[in-house]
Simulated scan of single mutants.
Amino acid sequence: MILLRIMLFPFAVLYGWITRFRNWLYDKGVLKSYSFDIPVIAVGNLSVGGTGKTPQIEYLIRLLSVEYNVAVLSRGYKRKSKGFVLADTNSNAETLGDEPYQYYRKFQNVQVAVDADRKNGITQLLSQHEKPDVILLDDAYQHRKVKAGFYILLTSYDDLYADDFMLPTGNLREGRNGAKRADIIIVTKCPAGISEKERNEISHRLKISNKQALFFTYISYDDRIYGNNDIIPVSDIIAKHKTLVAGIAKPLPFFEHLRNERDVLMTFPDHHDFSMEDVSKITEKPDNLIVTTEKDYVRLIDKLQSDRLFYLPIKTAFVSGQQDFNQKVKSVFLKRGEITSVKN
């Protein structure tokens, strides 16, 4: 695999020039970007998958939905529907995609929509009877057709964009210069005890500008797992026989958090659409608890109706500077006088 990536280096160089030229066209106004009269916050990355966008979006929902009407707009990766779809009681992972459906199930006080055309999606959300005060664009850092008012760029601690290269040799969807568009850069999935010295070293490697803010976060696991009819403390299930199921980009931390030496570990591709054959394999051991990620749970729940099926929620936690981050995000409502309606 490594040899193949090296052999594809010329294509990576070509892809890098194409994405750079595309960004230049947007920067110079040759290709038009559209902005809107309400705050739009884009969250994304330079690389493909595994940087923790979902818990970061959920953090922003919790932060902003107390005061504002929040809408989340995603493309709905691997969904089976087309065009603009606003989540409702008939929605599921197939019509929305796993992550948007997770948002919808979890946060009943926010609007969740999907549309590959983010400009159209925002326009549709603004035409709803209950208009949002702020729109969170999920995985939209490269969607230059919409000019967001605020950009949050994520990069994983163990795979910094500064150490990566363009696809297909590396994992970057656009060159490292794309980081300059970010207002905030977050290094995700850090060790909780990362030292100040290492944080300063990473800041230097990422070449953070004076106009940007850098934060470090880690994954905080819930102390309980959740099923349809039961909630169990994690401490009670560590020693039990389990089948651990993960269809995410980087499953190892999930496994290491829950596993014992007798557990069955089952890994699937990111955003995997579970087949009935998959379900049969997952349920092979009738005495095992089945524990999966929250994202996989929303894909499995309609196919695996079982009291043995549970999921482990995660949250984004800040190493330091959480209040500073919150204030910087909320400052988007003060830009250009765009103070919007506040919830009663």
Score class of each variant (00 low, 15 high):
260 N>I: 05
331 S>R: 04
181 R>G: 02
323 Q>T: 10
233 P>C: 05
4 L>G: 15
290 I>G: 03
96 L>S: 04
159 D>F: 10
266 M>I: 10
163 D>L: 10
184 I>W: 09
177 N>S: 12
239 A>W: 13
105 R>L: 11
147 K>H: 05
4 L>E: 14
104 Y>I: 06
250 K>E: 07
160 L>K: 04
36 F>S: 06
326 N>Y: 07
21 F>P: 14
57 I>R: 06
339 I>F: 05
51 T>R: 02
215 F>I: 08
89 T>W: 08
266 M>R: 05
295 K>Y: 04
302 D>S: 06
315 K>W: 02
242 K>W: 10
246 A>P: 06
118 R>D: 07
233 P>G: 03
163 D>M: 05
300 L>Y: 09
340 T>E: 03
124 Q>R: 15
342 V>A: 04
280 S>P: 06
261 E>Q: 15
46 L>K: 00
57 I>T: 02
91 S>D: 05
146 V>W: 07
75 R>K: 10
173 R>T: 03
3 L>Y: 15
77 Y>N: 01
181 R>T: 00
134 V>S: 00
93 A>T: 13
282 I>G: 02
77 Y>E: 07
45 N>K: 12
277 E>L: 14
341 S>Y: 10
258 L>M: 06
220 S>W: 09
279 V>S: 04
271 H>Q: 04
163 D>Y: 09
169 T>E: 07
160 L>M: 15
289 L>C: 10
228 N>Y: 00
166 M>Q: 10
105 R>Y: 08
211 K>C: 14
239 A>D: 15
155 T>F: 01
63 L>G: 14
66 V>R: 13
138 D>L: 04
36 F>E: 04
244 L>D: 10
25 L>M: 10
344 N>E: 08
38 I>Y: 07
73 L>W: 01
3 L>W: 15
298 V>D: 06
3 L>S: 15
284 E>P: 09
260 N>K: 07
57 I>A: 12
103 Y>R: 00
63 L>T: 00
311 Y>C: 09
91 S>W: 05
42 A>F: 06
282 I>K: 12
151 Y>T: 04
238 I>N: 12
50 G>A: 12
240 K>M: 09
96 L>P: 00
71 A>Y: 11
233 P>W: 05
249 A>Y: 01
162 A>L: 06
